[in-house]
């Protein structure tokens, strides 16, 4: 009997030791999740706390599924994410490869490269909004002074140009995330395979294509997973530059959700939108982790 109890106690020990961690996780992660899931099933308005107890089943979700504005924002967010991340990857890779070649002043340059990340996205938004102002902005004035155009180009009004301007601001701000992670990858890269390849007569492109790039891909996928979460919740920058307009042309998920949740105080509906949009983040993260595992396996095989 006593023995059985002792065994049980020993078996319980790991759980008991983990209990504080589990409790913290439940409190910090699970509870807010359950709470926000509940609110998404109610007509919860921030300014009317009592509405938290009216259960309306899936009415918020049904409304959202029928709301084309939401799906437009959803698809636009996916497009924005895809373009921004690929551009940041390409540019970050270029910068990392260039910095890796430098022998003098590398540290200083690495620090300078981080500067855009140090600004708050709100400030970056204001800065680019001013640059792209059609009338008193620097970009149009420069183009007009150089005689390249005699028109005021509507950078923040035309649907394509506005998305381009926002993407440029996002890329300017965050390319260094890729650059720094890929640079870390380059530093960690073993020299032997590179030298072996050169001895075997590979040209620089072949070395890059078949050795450097596959080695860097796991780093790239980690950066992509992090950045996809970042971009999918892009808000500050867009809110400042266009606030989703004009006429919803640059509406992304979080400008829509923030407006619904705070300006209109309809937190129940906003949470329903947020739940659907987390699917997006989960899908992207899952995709990049799968790619990461595949890239690692490939590297394992190559060794």
């Amino acid at each position: 009997m006593i023995r059985a109890l002792t065994t049980r106690r020993t078996e319980m020990a790991p759980f008991l030791l983990l209990l504080p961690a589990i409790a913290t996780m439940l409190f910090v992660v699970a509870l807010p999740l359950v709470f926000s899931l509940w609110t998404s099933l109610t007509p919860y308005k921030l300014t009317k706390p009592d509405t938290l107890y009216d259960f309306i089943w899936f009415r918020n979700y049904i409304r959202i599924f029928a709301d084309w504005d939401f799906w437009e924002a959803f698809l636009r967010t996916i497009a924005f994410l895809t373009v921004a991340i690929n551009l940041e990857f390409a540019l970050g890779l270029g910068i990392a490869l260039l910095i890796n070649k430098i022998t003098w002043g590398q540290r200083g340059l690495r620090t300078i490269m981080m500067f855009p990340m140090m600004f708050s996205p709100i400030l970056v938004g204001f800065q680019f909004k001013f640059l792209f102002n059609d009338h008193i902005g620097v970009v149009n004035n420069a183009l007009q002074s150089l005689g390249l155009t005699d028109q005021a180009i509507p950078w923040l009004v035309d649907a394509n140009l506005a998305m381009f301007s926002i993407t440029l601001a996002e890329v300017w701000m965050s390319t260094s995330v890729f650059a720094i992670l890929l640079l870390a990858g380059l530093f960690a890269m073993p020299r032997d395979p590179l030298e072996a390849a050169r001895v075997d007569g590979c040209n620089p492109w072949q070395v890059f294509r078949h050795i450097t790039l596959p080695f860097l891909m796991p780093f790239a996928y980690i950066a992509m997973a992090i950045r996809s979460l970042d971009v999918a919740r892009a808000y500050d920058l867009v809110a400042v530059m266009t606030d989703g307009g004009p006429a919803g042309r640059t509406e992304l998920l979080w400008t829509l959700i923030a407006r619904t949740g705070y300006d209109e105080a309809k937190m129940g509906q906003a949470n329903a939108m947020a739940y659907i949009s987390t699917i997006l983040s989960v899908l992207f993260t899952w995709h990049f982790y799968r790619k990461l595992v595949a890239a690692r396996r490939y590297m394992g095989g190559a060794e």
Binding site: D134, H135, L156, V157, A162, M241, G245
Partner: peptide, 9 residues
Amino acid sequence: KAVPVGVPN
């Protein structure tokens, strides 16, 4: 075009 083209923003 009697107002700047960027006014919607």
